[in-house]
Amino acid sequence: MLSKKQARALFLGGTVVTFLIFIGLTVFSLSKAQDQTNREDITESVVRGKLIWEKNNCMGCHSIFGEGAYYAPELTKVVERRGEPLIKAILMSESPWNPKGRKMVAYGMTEEEANDVIAFFKWAGNVDLNGFERIVSPLAKERLSNQN
């Protein structure tokens, strides 16, 4: 039967070993050779777009890469699905966008701000998400609707 000392050794040893493996995998998967995010495409405009995304807590309703609040649509590949002009119009609108009975805050962004947010969406749309991008891509939607 396991003694208290052995149980403590299991806890401490197991924790240290798994944590070291975790750090190793982190370093490996974030290394340049393993990059799936096209780091070189993160322009100043993309960074400004990400800051606007955070400043307005867009993730508090929408989701991106499947992370968010599921109250408003997933925005990975949104530019391909909805097109740039519509997204721009929504972001710049002074009155609340109200699609099918659910309200969005009217942000009334400037054209430059809206362009930055779209640049962020475009960058996000090109990230290799291990297959999740196919679930939310316009092609998947079309394929599925053709089946119906």
Partner: peptide
């Protein structure tokens, strides 16, 4: 600790 990986499936890492 390694179960953290289930949050990394679809965010753009290996």
């Amino acid at each position: 600790i390694l179960g953290t990986g289930h949050h990394y499936y679809y965010i753009g890492v290996n």
